[in-house]
Design a protein around this nucleic acid. Structure first.
Lengths: 256, 256
DNA sequence: CCTTATCGAGCGAGCGTTCGGTAGATATTG
DNA sequence: CAATATCTACCGAACGCTCGCTCGATAAGG
């Protein structure tokens, strides 16, 4: 357990964690994962053909859905955009709903994979761990903006089964924040009267970034600036009074 | 301009503003406003008939849309739910899109009406004003939950014109927060280095309450508790260090 | 008996999905 | 290696259905 002075000193310098770029998956990798998970419903066998086609389909579907919504996207739109015929598309999914489930499940799985694998040196200190969770979540959504926008916009208005999936994924994300904050309280890094509501409030602040991406782009707000601000708001809500004073603007330092 | 000690003392007691119940409109009043605004497209002339019918239509439309989305709600569904025929419905709107615009415009207008009319004694102090804005917004959405849920869920996925309307409404709300925070900085109530991003972060925290209403109901979180927590998070982000320490749990005291 | 408010069958358009057909790659055979 | 057979990946017309919306008929009140 560190005392306030030690923590203040620790916070004064921006923590540096390894660049996420390494472990942030490419769209091609996501599609490969989807292809593997849906071998039984995808009738095209040769990966050299299936993979680029599936990627083209998914990217087009996400793109079309992100203007107008998934329901509003017709398979004729998708057919035109991908250059494939209506019948041809059905070699890659057995219903429009399955197409949607493919994407949602992959996004939910990605969040879990990334957030549950922090670098070892990050988890030593709850403050650093919390900041890493916030920063990493933001960078992940930034790297796969269209995918997360899609998942957010379409998770509502769903058949109960898919809706449950979205709710579970959200609860899991919140649990990451809950766990580290609880650990911080127990270890004395966070104030003991930190509100149990705080973890729930972090998620909407992270969603704001990619849902309203256009707004922040228009205003010239960088991801670094947004990340720093969310970290600051959250830490001011859970750090003891003195710790908060030492808060320096903080994000991961650019590497390379 | 107050000094820190004065402000701390002021904050220690929960501010009390008049109950919003008085000025919070009923659904019937909203419908009356909509009826007046759409006289030209509504062909039914006698208000004694038009008003209850319109209310029935709007409430059913919001209800049906809030499970499944506006697009998924068919006019046959609406016909069944209201007990009116397809043709009969078209005496109250000239297209499905108009029906949607009626509701969105009314909600946007309501937000503007309520938030731009704070009680006189609230506006004297930026801290109280800011807390009033947060608390009032939450109570407004609580009183008209279905309407705000509808507006939030359907504001995306829109023709550009309606989308612009939603964006403008959101910007207006943010501007209320911006103005009072700026005033607080100038008057010395808020720290001079308060992030210009803070106003933008308040909105998602308020939306969270009605968008995820079921989650907080399940957890037994009351509106008072949620309001207090959001106020605390926001004030910790903009109050000078000392002021934050004096923060007592705060909401409008219930008036019996 | 005209006006007002409502009805409900029905229109054309567009939806998700299916399925018979086929070109080209691949495997099998002599 | 040429000829043949098989398979893979895809096409696109067509099907059954639901959609938003219209319009002539109709009922009720003054």
């Amino acid at each position: 357990m560190t005392n306030p002075t030690q923590r203040a000193a620790q916070l004064a310098s921006a923590p540096i964690w390894p660049p996420m770029t390494d472990q942030m998956p490419t769209v091609a990798q996501l599609c490969q994962s989807i292809l593997a998970r849906h071998q039984d419903t995808i009738s095209v066998r040769k990966p050299s053909i299936a993979l680029p086609r599936l990627q083209r389909i998914l990217e087009a579907a996400i793109d079309l859905s992100n203007k107008g919504g998934f329901q509003a996207m017709s398979l004729r739109d998708l057919s035109r955009e991908t250059g494939m015929s209506a019948g041809g598309l059905y070699a890659y999914f057995d219903s429009k709903t399955t197409l949607l489930k493919m994407i949602l499940a992959e996004v939910a799985d990605l969040v879990q994979r990334i957030l549950s694998n922090p670098p070892a040196d990050v988890t030593r200190d709850p403050v650093t761990h919390l900041r890493w969770l916030i920063d990493t979540h933001l960078r992940m959504t930034e790297a796969l903006l269209a995918w997360f926008t899609f998942a957010f916009m379409e998770a509502k208005n769903f058949p109960p089964a898919e809706r449950r999936m979205a709710v579970d994924s959200e609860m899991l994300t919140e649990s990451f924040f809950s766990a580290v904050i609880l650990r911080g309280i127990e270890g004395g890094a966070f104030r003991p009267d930190t509100s149990p509501l705080l973890p729930a409030l972090i998620k909407p602040l992270l969603q704001e970034w990619y849902v309203k991406r256009a707004k922040y782009r228009r205003r010239g707000i960088t991801l670094d600036a947004y990340s720093a601000e969310v970290q600051q708001v959250v830490l001011r809500a859970c750090l003891p009074e003195r710790g908060g004073a030492a808060l320096a603007p903080m994000t991961r330092a650019p590497i390379g």
